[in-house]
Amino acid sequence: MVHRIEREFSFVLNGKPVKVRAPPAYSLLEVLRYELRMTGTKEGCARGDCGECTVLIDGEPVHACLTAMTQVEGRRVTTIEGIDPGHPLVRAFVESGAVQCGHCTPGLIVASYALLSRNPRPTEEEVRDAIRGNLCRCTGYAKVVAAVLRAAGA
């Protein structure tokens, strides 16, 4: 048997301090889903292409699959579970029909949430740029872009 190296990591997850033991080269995605059982963050490609595992670290969208646990120590992590279901962005996704199979939805909402926190009145161009790293195979993006613009009050 190959041995497993584990260390303890402390960080703030959706506003609450957490401690977790995990191999230091494991990704935040693996630890969220398999150690902390927070399965809102989806695993798509696990290589940075699809954006499904987008989370915020200190407010900035990054891929949980490309974030080693040592890069999470002491930081603030926000996942889809940390965004209120009544948030205008979430409601706009539902009301605009921007959700079909739903697999890309958490990543898209987290990425758009980061955009709106920084830029509450984005143009369509800015919305498309902010989600260029989030693949959706169902909606053709039109309704997703419409939802983000709707949440921004456009």
Partner: peptide, 12 residues
């Protein structure tokens, strides 16, 4: 096949 990194140490 994905290579698992459970036995990789990371120094900070």
């Amino acid at each position: 096949m994905e290579v698992l990194l459970h036995d990789v140490d990371v120094l900070v």
